[in-house]
Structure formats: structure tokens, C-alpha cells
């Protein structure tokens, strides 16, 4: 059994897939590429694959992580060679590395995610940044969301590590967000946008990197 970690980018039409759909897409890709995936035991065998974090629908990303388990060893370059011709539009493989089977699942190791929100429209970046810093100066930012059919209150503030806004191009700005991401809760950039009254603005969100324990760079 071999465990490989694939870092990949998501763009174009694939932004709008849920993580379940992405799992199916990868599985089919591996089949076409004849990659020997290992399967779970039991009644309904599934391919052994784990996503580090579900990328929200609508987001593009430079770096998503997928751990796969193979029942026959493959050199990482061989995997790259086999999968490259089978990549659909919007999927780019960045790297493949072998990972120890003993290491915990990436979901458990994840701590942070970095995002870049592109706001399209006439916004004053300086003004927006000031409002953003004011928001983050508050001790708590209470919000509500529906979890399992029930309205639940939660504090957004501890889920956001930092955020700032800067101008981008002739007209438009970008908001950079570093948020907690992992087992102890994830901060969503959309929540910040909503707090700033921007939920109906035209924006796109791009995840630039994931941070996890043991990450070397």
C-alpha cells in the first residue's frame, strides 16, 4: 500500500463542483489513467481517497490536497505522466509526493487557509480596508447559520487570523484573508464579506494555499 499526496489547482468550470463531485471526477480520471487505487473493505467498497479540505462551491484554488492510496506502488513521476493526458479543463496537478502511511489524515493536520477575494466594481480600497480593520478590532463577531436544520450562533472572529484590503488594477480591489481551516472550525471569507455589507457584490474567491502541521515551506 502506498500513500501519495497530490497538490492540485482548480479553476474554470470545475470551480462549481462540490467536493463529492470532485471525488467522482478524480476517481474516473484515475481509472482512465489506469492508476491502481486501493479500495475500502466491506459491503460497498469505495476508492481510498481523502481530501484535506472541501473547497467551497464557486471557489478556484492554487492548492488543494488529495491523498490517495494505491494497492501497487507507483513512482510519483509515473503518476504524473499517467494522469496528465486525462486531466479535464480546469484541473492542474502541481505536485505528487509520497507520504508515510502512519501520518494522520491531512484533515487532522490542517490549520489555516489563505484566500484572495477579488472584488469587481467601484470600491475604495483604502476605505474598505479601514472598515475591515475596524471589524477585526472587535472582540467578537457573532453570526448565525443553519446547522442540521437548526439555527446556530457562532463567533466569526477567532476563525479569522488576519485580513486586509488593497487596490488592484485601475478599478477594483482584493481582500486577502488568512482563516483557520481544519477540525476546530473554518473561517469563510464570505462571512467577512457579508459583515462588510458586500454579500451581493460581484466577487470571486481564490484559495491560494493550505497550511498544515509538518508543511515544510
Amino acid at each position: 500500500m502506498q500513500r501519495l499526496r497530490i497538490a492540485y489547482g482548480v479553476s474554470g468550470p470545475l470551480r462549481y463542483l462540490s467536493v463529492l463531485d470532485m471525488g467522482l471526477l478524480w476517481e474516473r480520471l484515475f481509472r482512465r489513467a489506469r492508476v491502481p487505487l486501493a479500495y475500502t473493505q466491506g459491503f460497498n467498497p469505495r476508492a481510498r481517497m481523502q481530501f484535506a479540505s472541501a473547497l467551497p462551491v464557486g471557489y478556484s484554488s492554487d492548492e488543494e490536497l488529495l491523498d490517495i492510496y494505491l494497492c501497487e506502488r507507483m513512482i510519483d513521476s509515473a503518476l504524473l505522466l499517467a494522469t496528465t493526458p486525462e486531466l479535464p479543463i480546469g484541473l492542474q496537478v502541481k505536485s505528487v509526493v509520497e507520504v508515510s502511511l502512519r501520518e494522520p489524515p491531512t484533515q487532522a493536520l490542517l490549520s489555516e487557509a489563505h484566500y484572495r477575494v477579488s472584488l469587481h466594481g467601484p470600491f475604495d480600497a483604502h476605505d474598505l480596508n479601514a472598515r475591515l480593520q475596524q471589524l477585526l478590532a472587535r472582540p467578537e463577531i457573532m453570526r448565525q447559520r443553519i446547522r442540521k436544520g437548526k439555527m446556530v450562533r457562532y463567533d466569526l472572529r477567532p476563525l479569522i487570523c488576519s485580513a486586509w484590503c488593497e487596490a488592484f488594477g485601475p478599478a477594483g480591489c482584493q481582500i486577502h484573508v488568512i482563516a483557520r481551516c481544519g477540525a476546530s472550525g473554518s473561517g469563510r471569507p464570505e462571512d467577512l464579506l457579508d459583515e462588510l455589507g458586500l454579500s451581493t457584490a460581484h466577487y470571486t474567491i481564490h484559495r491560494t494555499r493550505l497550511v498544515w502541521e509538518g508543511r515544510e515551506d
Binding site: 474554470g12 468550470p13 470545475l14 462549481y16 463542483l17 479535464p88
Partner: peptide, 9 residues
Amino acid sequence: PGRYMGGEW
């Protein structure tokens, strides 16, 4: 939204 995107294999 995936319904409206195209770009499929």
C-alpha cells in the same frame, strides 16, 4: 451552478 458551465471530459 455546475449545470451551466460545460467544459466536461
